[in-house]
Amino acid sequence: MHRQVTAEELEYLYLLIGKGIWHLQYVEDGVSGEEAKALLAKQRRNTLGTSLKIAREKKLIEDVLLGRPSEFKEECDWLVHRSQCSHGDLLYTDRGRAETFTRLEAFTNEAHRLQAALLGDINQYLIAIGIDTAAAQRFASQNTGRLRSEG
């Protein structure tokens, strides 16, 4: 059964797209140490695909660990470049809307999981090289709290 998408469903679609892209950016960020300060502006311009390519070429991450981020990149490419074309017409059916919303929700959930996994790996690395991660966490929490109270 085809029907017009409601304003609420369209708003939810846009919310999920925005949420997915927002959380993708957390996954795309991720360097540490003094090098991060020097390269941060440049690295933040990289897309997930570019970051994965660099990691693969420079052997920064073992190939076996690149599978999940690579699969996520495919979903990222779908969301940013193909979702409207591939799923736009599906929004006019109950089943199509459900499929689209489920895929978008899964994308955001995977962004959360990847972010946590990457932060865990970074944390283990920092501990291994002798950085006090508890102090860094306290500093980050204080800074975040300050930024939130300035709003």
Rank of each mutant, 00 (worst) to 15 (best):
residue 150 E to I: 14
residue 7 A to H: 03
residue 103 R to N: 08
residue 58 K to A: 13
residue 77 D to G: 11
residue 17 I to F: 04
residue 72 F to E: 14
residue 102 T to Q: 11
residue 37 K to C: 01
residue 57 E to D: 01
residue 133 T to H: 11
residue 61 I to T: 06
residue 15 L to Q: 10
residue 129 I to R: 15
residue 149 S to W: 07
residue 33 G to C: 11
residue 27 V to S: 01
residue 110 E to Y: 01
residue 89 D to C: 01
residue 30 G to H: 02
residue 126 L to N: 02
residue 149 S to L: 13
residue 76 C to Q: 09
residue 31 V to W: 02
residue 131 I to Y: 00
residue 94 D to W: 07
residue 5 V to L: 10
residue 110 E to G: 13
residue 72 F to C: 12
residue 93 T to D: 04
residue 118 L to Y: 14
residue 80 V to R: 09
residue 36 A to F: 10
residue 150 E to N: 05
residue 4 Q to A: 14
residue 20 G to V: 04
residue 140 A to H: 09
residue 137 Q to M: 14
residue 37 K to L: 09
residue 129 I to W: 08
residue 134 A to W: 05
residue 98 A to M: 14
residue 79 L to D: 07
residue 130 G to M: 09
residue 110 E to D: 13
residue 76 C to S: 13
residue 70 S to T: 01
residue 70 S to L: 00
residue 10 L to W: 09
residue 90 L to M: 11
residue 3 R to A: 10
residue 140 A to F: 07
residue 128 A to V: 10
residue 113 R to T: 14
residue 3 R to I: 05
residue 140 A to P: 00
residue 35 E to L: 05
residue 30 G to E: 05
residue 118 L to A: 14
residue 108 T to G: 08
residue 101 F to K: 03
residue 66 L to I: 02
residue 81 H to Q: 07
residue 47 T to S: 13
residue 91 L to K: 02
residue 140 A to Q: 09
residue 15 L to C: 04
residue 38 A to N: 06
residue 53 K to R: 02
residue 69 P to Q: 09
residue 11 E to T: 10
residue 38 A to F: 06
residue 132 D to S: 03
residue 21 I to T: 11
residue 124 Q to S: 14
residue 23 H to A: 10
residue 64 V to I: 12
residue 27 V to R: 00
residue 113 R to I: 10
residue 144 T to M: 15
residue 80 V to Y: 06
residue 76 C to E: 01
residue 15 L to N: 06
residue 127 I to K: 12
residue 72 F to I: 10
residue 57 E to H: 00
residue 105 E to I: 09
residue 134 A to M: 05
residue 119 L to M: 05
residue 109 N to V: 08
residue 148 R to M: 14
residue 130 G to T: 15
residue 54 I to P: 05
residue 71 E to C: 07
residue 68 R to A: 07
residue 37 K to R: 04
residue 107 F to H: 11
residue 86 S to L: 15
residue 84 Q to Y: 11
residue 105 E to R: 04
residue 49 G to W: 01
residue 31 V to Q: 08
residue 139 F to L: 11
residue 129 I to S: 14
residue 42 K to F: 13
residue 9 E to F: 00
residue 94 D to Q: 12
residue 60 L to S: 07
residue 131 I to S: 00
residue 20 G to K: 05
residue 28 E to R: 02
residue 50 T to F: 07
residue 78 W to G: 10
residue 13 L to T: 05
residue 64 V to Y: 03
residue 121 D to E: 15
residue 139 F to C: 00
residue 104 L to N: 02
residue 12 Y to N: 06
residue 125 Y to E: 14
residue 103 R to E: 12
residue 123 N to S: 13
residue 73 K to M: 08
residue 2 H to D: 15
residue 20 G to I: 04
residue 63 D to K: 01
residue 128 A to F: 13
residue 110 E to P: 01
residue 112 H to L: 12
residue 48 L to R: 02
residue 9 E to C: 08
residue 105 E to M: 06
residue 11 E to W: 15
